[in-house]
């Protein structure tokens, strides 16, 4: 038996198909979830994918956060359901307060699309156990609102507790505080990041490497061994 991993499609989601494909390549079964669904179809984990849900109106992720599907998702994430938010999904997780801080427009005001070097800072979450702490990876980054901000107290707490999961290497692409590319909640089941691991799971496309695949193999191992 393999794990069933849900991928939510909101109006304006872009990367739901790529995410489903990455899940399949890792050996798990993707389950399509719709923003109007009132239950999560008994999935073992959920990915909130990239895109521009509701056109990014009001704030990125602010309207998606109140979709019907988010009600059971928030409740179950708090109880331990593994949830990964990529790009717009990360923005939705901060808007839903499942992760601390907030996302704002890139400090240079331009859309950015490039291969990004990252350092894995925490290899103990549900979604990062197939990496090594300190490992450098290359995965695509593409966004408008990628600037992570949080107050000083929250930043200090994240750093002290090892909850910065990924950090940008080289030039900071968007003005994120402390070069933060991704963070985890206290329990390690909810992870959010701006770059796109689902676009780097096959050698033929993306960065030409498969540096994103361990996200999906990590969660599969965790669920199958559970």
């Amino acid at each position: 038996m393999t794990a069933r991993i849900g991928v939510v499609t909101f109006p304006g989601s872009l990367d739901d198909r790529d995410t489903q494909r990455a899940i399949r390549i890792a050996g798990a079964e993707p389950v399509a979830l719709w923003h109007k669904d009132k239950d999560l179809k008994q999935v073992d984990a959920v990915v909130l994918c990239g895109g521009f849900s509701y056109g990014d109106y009001l704030r990125a992720g602010a309207i998606a956060r109140f979709s019907p599907v988010m009600e059971p998702l928030i409740e179950q994430a708090k109880a331990g359901l593994p949830v990964l938010g990529i790009c717009n999904g990360f923005q939705i997780l901060t808007e839903a307060h499942l992760l601390p801080g907030a996302m704002l427009g890139n400090d240079h005001l331009h859309f950015i699309c490039r291969d990004q070097r990252l350092r894995v800072e925490n290899a103990e979450t549900s979604w990062t156990s197939d990496y090594r702490a300190g490992q450098e990876i290359h995965i695509p980054l593409k966004n408008m609102d990628g600037r992570y901000v949080a107050d000083g107290y929250t930043l200090d707490k994240l750093e002290a507790e090892g909850r910065v999961a990924f950090r940008y290497l080289g030039l900071n692409p968007n003005g994120s505080l402390n070069d933060i590319a991704g963070i985890t909640n206290e329990a390690g089941n909810v992870v959010g990041l701006m770059p796109h691991p689902e676009h780097a799971v096959e050698p033929l496309i993306g960065t030409g490497r498969t540096d994103g695949l361990p996200f999906f193999t990590s969660i599969l191992k965790k669920l199958v061994n559970a």
């Binding site: 704002l104 400090d107 005001l109 901000v149 107050d151």
Partner: peptide, 11 residues
């Protein structure tokens, strides 16, 4: 006030 506002700066 403590949050950087690049849009305001551009204006």
């Amino acid at each position: 006030p403590e949050i950087l506002d690049p849009q305001g700066q551009a204006v």
